[in-house]
Computed example of a mutant assay.
Amino acid sequence: MKAAVLKSFGSPLAIENVPEPVLGTGEVIVDVVATRVLSYMNEVFDGTRNYALDLPIIPGPGGIGRVRAIGPDATKLVVGNWVFCDPTVRSRDDAVAPDIALQGLTAAGPGGMRLQQHFRHGSFAEQMRVPTENVKRIGTITSEEATQWCALGTLLVPYGGFLAANLQAGETVLVSGATGNFGSAAVSVALAMGAACVVAPGRNEAILADLVRRFGSRVKPIRLTGVEDDDRDSMKRAASGPIDCVFDIMPPSVSTNVVRAAVMTVRPYGRVVLMGGVGMAGGAGLDLPYPWIMRNCISIHGVWMYPPDAASRLIALVRAGLLRLDEYQATTFDLDHANAAVEHAAAHGGPFKLTVIRP
């Protein structure tokens, strides 16, 4: 089969023929129809992000495809089913604290690297092998619709954060990083889950205005000034009431002052979700006042990805019409032009934009 292979950091993907994946027990083989290209994949491939990858590897986190072959432990899947391939692979021998690898992208710790050594190859290929539990049926779609269904991979990240925070319908949410790719997805997911109000701070006024245009008056845009106390007061005033949940998805380049200003808008007994990259590129970590956390009974959730059932639940939100995939505008490439797709994704990231490879 044809695949795009990363052989060394800093080198372009090699488009070549590789052996087809071999089915094992507890696994499914999927014919990949469409797979998204992350906006920062170029930084993964050149080593800037220092992701844990055992090279050579076929990259690509998740994708949309059709079931080609199933193992003996699959009782619901049928060959030909349209499915989402969830890239969050978990070890099966510790339900309390499983090791995790993101198939085709990275791994966490020695246990995650052991997972990657088996489920190493991702979706930049004509076929991929996936753990049975990571194959989620999405119902009948057309081949053309598979492109927009790739947005699931983006939307799942904030959905996992809101599930961890137990977001309830009618609550007020603040999304720190609302003008970014994952942040704008968080705005749409929070509204789909029934948030009464989403405070959306940012510096890009055009994107803030676009969020209001897309989702209406439940979005409360706030232009950040960089002055921590002033920004915190502005965010609080914009909310229709106390802020129940703060969701942070800021990238590594952002100052901790900006993150802290948002986090400390949350009400007493409120919840904070940290899913961003602050501190991952070095520099100071996030400093929060111990007395403020303790005396206000603040719950802080560090969340990496999402629980195993999140993809199926998010698919149900899409099927119910509560979450719209047609918000996303996609540019597609074939597998032969995978390197061009990576360049395009880096140059054209941002809210509601997809770069997709269709093998």
Rank of each mutant, 00 (worst) to 15 (best):
G270Y: 08
A239H: 13
G302L: 03
V175W: 02
A239T: 14
G282H: 04
F45L: 11
H348P: 08
Q168M: 12
D244F: 01
G202V: 03
G349V: 12
A200R: 04
T25E: 11
V30F: 04
D309V: 10
T142K: 01
P291E: 02
V227I: 15
D210K: 10
G302I: 01
G160N: 14
S39W: 08
N339K: 00
R267D: 04
A192W: 14
V263Y: 04
A330P: 02
H348R: 10
A206E: 10
V199W: 05
C245A: 01
T142H: 03
R295Q: 13
A14M: 12
H337G: 00
A320D: 09
N42L: 11
A311E: 08
R137F: 10
I57T: 01
T48P: 01
G177K: 05
A261D: 12
T142I: 03
A169R: 13
R203D: 12
A338G: 00
C85P: 06
L335F: 03
A14V: 15
A209Q: 12
I222F: 13
G349S: 10
D287W: 07
G10Q: 12
N257M: 06
D231V: 14
P87R: 14
M128F: 03
N296I: 13
Y269W: 13
D230I: 14
D336F: 01
R92D: 15
V246L: 01
I57N: 00
G112H: 06
A101Q: 07
M1I: 04
I293S: 09
L53Y: 01
R271S: 11
M280Y: 03
I357C: 04
V5N: 00
G80S: 11
A310I: 11
